[in-house]
């Protein structure tokens, strides 16, 4: 299959897909050499990166997806007739703690935030941003929370390494000392 041809076919598939498509999935669909696929994806991404395009091809949650450009959100929102919903400060804060510290228990989240967070965690789970990863092997077997694949999609992240780097605010000699949390006793 020629590169140009593959690019068009990829475009069609991306247009029709409602989720990020992983490389393996694309390979199963097109049955081409991975090298050719990568090249086509690369070129398609560059094509979409042209200024005059309204959508971009982005690497998200381990896959590729067509997304509208952020600068055109105003018009897409009008189309959708939906009010823009944004996560509250408290929700983002809780979500950030879960994202950076996963797997994390509710007690740990609450210790870090200093406030009761059960309601927010439940809300984040209902929004599919957070999921239960398992149970911590301590008395009471509290649930361990982590971020979901949808979390990556929500923030347009390729993977968790795309999270903003946490800045250190402590004095230089204290850098690296992390908080000891003893919930186990």
């Amino acid at each position: 299959m020629e590169l140009v041809q593959l690019k068009s076919r990829l475009e069609a598939v991306f247009f029709a897909s409602d989720e990020p498509l992983k490389l393996e999935r694309l390979q199963a669909i097109f049955e081409v050499e991975q090298e050719l696929l990568r090249q086509a994806l690369q070129e398609l991404t560059v094509d979409y990166a042209q200024k005059e395009r309204g959508v971009t091809l982005q690497e998200i949650a381990g896959g590729f997806q067509l997304r509208t450009r952020a600068e055109y959100s105003e018009w897409v929102v009008k189309l959708k007739r939906s009010r823009r919903t944004s996560l509250s400060k408290a929700a983002t804060e809780t979500l950030a703690i879960i994202a950076y510290r996963q797997p994390v228990t509710r007690a740990e989240i609450e210790y870090l935030r200093g406030v009761e967070s059960g309601g927010i965690v439940r809300m984040l789970m209902e929004k599919h941003l957070v999921k239960i990863l398992g149970k911590k092997d301590v008395p009471g077997r509290p649930s361990l929370y982590g971020t979901s694949g949808y979390f990556l999609e929500f923030f347009g992240l390729k993977d968790l390494s795309g999270l903003p780097n946490l800045r250190e605010f402590s004095a230089p000699d204290e850098v690296g000392i992390s908080l000891e949390m003893d919930f186990d006793s």
Partner: peptide
């Protein structure tokens, strides 16, 4: 330590909030 740790996450959350969010800033099918 708690304050410093809290500050880190607060800052991280504030910057995460700046990321384009699905169904708010960017849209997919």
């Amino acid at each position: 330590n708690r304050l410093l740790e809290y500050q880190r996450y607060k800052d991280g959350a504030a910057r995460l909030q700046q990321y384009p969010q699905l169904e708010r800033d960017v849209f997919s099918r």
